[in-house]
Amino acid sequence: MRKFLPWIIIVVIILGIYAWSAGIYNKAMTYDQGIKEAWGNVNTAYQKRNDLIVNLVKSVQGQADYEKGTLEAVVKARAEASQTKIDPTNITPEQLEKFNNAQSTLSRLLMTVENYPSLQANQGFLKLQDEITSMENQILTARTRYNEAIKPYNNNILTFPRNILAGMYGLKEKPYFEAVAGAEKAPDVEFNFDKKEESK
């Protein structure tokens, strides 16, 4: 029995290391699935808002006093936001920043549209405004839950000695959603009141 004892110890150690490393990888994959689900919810919320914007544009197109350039800016921003796609499996800080910037630009333009006084008498617009405001809240919730899904994944692969195995498995830290610099400020949009008054 003593003859085989060293081999038994080696086998037990190898199995222990295997079980430990497999546990780290499997837990990372479980967290990764949660991240994919959370990212899918973020995209769903943004897509729903983009669909509402089509109706918003139709609603304000007939407003004689509405600045055409602003409407075109909203349409352009929506197109750019829709074209910015991310693979949550290989997400990078640069990709997330680009996506975040596109969506933030659209959000800020929508805020400008919502604050335009002459649209407040349009009941159809007011309903859309409420829906878009609700969607912004849903987007905020989806982004928060995405960040909550990122945290356990990053903790799992960045703490020592897990980070050594994570590097061997090719697992990398995933970025969080962060506020875009200047996102709290609405874009400068000029409305052509003087020209319209002169033409009357």
Rank of each mutant, 00 (worst) to 15 (best):
M1D: 15
R2M: 03
K3E: 08
K3V: 12
L5C: 03
L5A: 14
P6K: 01
P6C: 05
I8Y: 05
V11C: 12
I14C: 12
L15D: 05
I17Y: 11
K27L: 10
T30F: 00
Y31H: 11
Q33I: 09
G34C: 01
K36P: 02
E37R: 02
V42D: 11
N43L: 02
A45H: 07
Y46D: 03
Y46G: 01
Q47I: 05
N50Q: 07
N50Y: 14
I53R: 05
V54S: 11
N55H: 06
N55F: 03
L56T: 07
L56D: 03
V57A: 08
T70Q: 03
L71A: 01
V74P: 13
V75S: 05
S82C: 04
I86A: 01
P93I: 06
F99Q: 11
Q103P: 08
Q103T: 13
S104K: 09
S107N: 14
R108K: 14
L109A: 08
M111Y: 07
M111V: 14
E114I: 15
Y116D: 06
P117S: 06
L119S: 12
A121K: 11
K127G: 09
I132L: 10
S134Q: 14
E136D: 14
E136Y: 05
E136A: 13
N137C: 02
I139N: 03
T141R: 09
A142P: 09
R145A: 11
Y146S: 10
E148N: 02
A149F: 11
I150N: 01
N154E: 02
N155K: 06
N156V: 00
N156R: 07
N156G: 02
T159Q: 04
F160T: 01
N163C: 04
A166L: 01
G167S: 11
L171N: 08
F177M: 10
A179Y: 01
V180R: 00
V180Y: 00
G182D: 11
E184P: 09
P187V: 05
P187E: 04
D188S: 08
E190P: 00
E190A: 07
D194P: 08
E197N: 13
E197F: 11
E198D: 04
E198G: 07
